[in-house]
Computed example of a mutant assay.
Amino acid sequence: MAVKVVRYSHAGEPHWGVVHDRRIAPLLCDGASTADFVTNGLEAAWRSTPGEATLALDGVTLLPPVTPDRQFLCQGINYASHVRESGMDPDKIGFNTLFTKAPSCLAAADADVLRPGHVHLLDYEIELGLVVRKPLTGALRVGPEQLHEFLAGVTIVNDISARDVQLPQAQFYKGKSYRSFGPVGPFLVLLNAEEWARWPELRMRLHVNGQPRQDTYCGDMIFKPHQTLTELSALHDLQPGDLIATGTPAGCAARAPGKLATWVFRHVLSERTKWQLFIKKGRSNPAYLQPGDIMTASIRTDDGAIELGEQRNRVVSA
Rank of each mutant, 00 (worst) to 15 (best):
D159I: 15
V208W: 06
D159L: 14
V113A: 04
L243P: 00
S33I: 04
A256Y: 11
E145D: 14
D302F: 10
V189T: 15
Y8L: 07
A170W: 13
W275F: 09
P103S: 14
P14F: 11
V189I: 14
L229I: 09
T39A: 09
A35G: 03
A111K: 02
D69A: 07
C218H: 06
T67L: 10
H236F: 14
R179L: 14
P183H: 13
N192A: 14
L98S: 03
R22L: 15
L98E: 01
L260G: 00
Q227W: 08
V165Q: 03
S177C: 14
S104E: 09
P240E: 01
T246Y: 02
T49H: 10
S233I: 12
N209G: 02
V264I: 15
R7H: 13
P50V: 15
L191G: 00
W275R: 02
L98Q: 03
K280V: 04
R314T: 10
A107M: 14
S298A: 12
G182E: 10
R272S: 14
R272F: 12
E13T: 12
A254D: 05
R70T: 02
R203T: 08
L308N: 07
E127C: 03
T67K: 11
K176P: 00
S270K: 07
A109K: 10
P90L: 08
P90S: 06
W196Y: 07
I279C: 02
Q71F: 04
I160S: 01
R300A: 13
R266I: 04
Y79P: 00
V113W: 08
A193L: 06
S9I: 12
L232M: 15
L191M: 13
E310K: 13
T100A: 09
G185M: 11
L243R: 06
H20S: 05
G31L: 06
Y217D: 05
R213E: 03
G304E: 12
W275G: 01
R84W: 11
A234K: 05
G258N: 13
G76I: 09
D293M: 09
V189E: 05
